[in-house]
Simulated assay, not measured.
Amino acid sequence: MPRAKLTVRIPDDLWIHDVSTSHSDVTFRVSSVLPGPDAVIGVLELTASNPVPILADIDSRDDVRELELLWTHDETAMLQVETADPSLVAPMRQAGAPMETPFEVEDGAVTWELTTSADRLSALGESLEESGIGYDIEYVHSTDASRATQLLTDRQLEVFLTAIDGGYYDVPREATLTDVASALEISKSTCSDVLHRAEGAIAHWFTAEYVGRREQ
């Protein structure tokens, strides 16, 4: 199953294109989206030295049905916007590719990351092209679920899950190493060794699978 990152060029006639290009030094962080057949509702956050002109600019756009300021703090504002033009997210709906949030909009472009099937990713590309929406594929990686499930031995998995269930990784910690060892009826030193190996395997896998990819 591929994981992809796309940079999509927002059509010129959409409010978010005009506003993000007019205020090109501002990043709009979209935390949630509710797409519909003839409207889209989104919650987004922006940070600017004076957000009031930006809010006024959004509210003046013809395709913005409703703007609601949810809260402000210092230079950050969170708002909910309902737009009458769903053309930007329509290709996602048509391809059946789940939209992941949060994502960012900056200077007329939106960055999307998604994990879906190869067929749906291909269908998304076709839908974007049919809609006349330009895009660039930053990367496509294959996620190997089997590798993730085979990281740990049965014993390591048992100890690791017992630690999680007991609250060993909670903040504040709900269980000590002694508690985990007692639940498994093993010595504290054995528990520590097995848990350390499990944590190491997970950390190395995560670094190779995600952190390394972000640096590409």
Rank of each mutant, 00 (worst) to 15 (best):
E106C: 01
E185L: 08
D59F: 02
C191A: 13
R29D: 04
E129V: 05
N50P: 04
S24T: 12
E126Y: 11
V140R: 00
K5I: 03
P98I: 14
D13E: 14
Y135I: 09
R3N: 13
E209V: 12
A181R: 04
A118K: 15
S20N: 05
A208G: 10
I58W: 06
D59M: 07
D25W: 02
M92K: 03
Y135E: 10
L157M: 10
I58T: 09
M1I: 04
W15H: 09
V30C: 01
L161E: 15
A48R: 13
D59E: 13
P86C: 05
H17E: 01
D74H: 14
S187M: 05
S49I: 07
W205R: 05
A90Q: 06
D107K: 00
W71Q: 12
T143C: 11
G125I: 03
G96I: 05
V89R: 00
V89T: 11
Q94I: 13
A118W: 04
S146T: 11
H73T: 14
V159W: 09
P98L: 14
E106T: 02
E130Y: 09
P51A: 06
I58D: 09
D25S: 05
S49M: 10
V110C: 00
Q94D: 13
R3I: 13
P53L: 06
D179M: 08
M78Y: 00
T149P: 00
T21H: 08
R120D: 06
T176P: 09
S22E: 14
P37M: 06
A163G: 10
T153M: 09
S117W: 10
E158N: 12
L128M: 10
E104W: 00
A95G: 07
D193E: 15
P37K: 04
R3C: 15
L44R: 01
L114S: 15
I186C: 15
R9G: 07
Y168K: 04
T190H: 15
A84R: 09
L177R: 05
L195E: 15
V211C: 10
